[in-house]
Computed example of a mutant assay.
Amino acid sequence: MDQDKWLTIDELADYLKVGRTKLYRMAQEGVIPASKVGNQWRFDREEIDEWMKLQRPAATKGNKIGHS
């Protein structure tokens, strides 16, 4: 079994370079994919990676590279 599949809040904060307080708030508000086990949050690394990809800003029509 992959021991790095589930991240703690501290591990995720280090992984994403984001503060713990912000991650707690995001988890509680359902902004970031998370599971709560007892009173502790856990984060699936694969879900976090997919979620991060979805956070990329969409290109606007006027900012496309290679088009005049």
Rank of each mutant, 00 (worst) to 15 (best):
M1L: 12
M1D: 06
D2A: 11
D2S: 10
D2R: 11
D2W: 08
Q3S: 10
D4S: 15
K5G: 00
K5A: 10
T8H: 02
T8D: 01
I9A: 07
I9M: 11
D10L: 08
D10Y: 06
D10M: 08
E11C: 01
A13Y: 02
A13T: 00
D14A: 08
D14T: 05
Y15S: 02
Y15F: 15
K17V: 09
K17R: 10
K17M: 09
V18L: 13
R20K: 14
T21C: 04
L23C: 00
R25Y: 04
R25D: 03
M26T: 00
M26L: 08
A27V: 03
E29C: 06
G30Q: 06
G30S: 08
I32W: 08
A34F: 03
A34W: 05
S35G: 02
K36H: 01
K36G: 00
K36F: 02
G38A: 08
N39S: 05
Q40F: 07
R42I: 04
R42Y: 06
F43V: 07
F43W: 03
I48T: 08
D49Y: 11
D49W: 12
W51T: 13
M52G: 05
L54P: 00
A58R: 15
T60I: 14
K61H: 13
G62S: 14
K64Y: 13
G66L: 09
G66D: 12
G66V: 07
H67W: 13
H67M: 13
S68E: 12
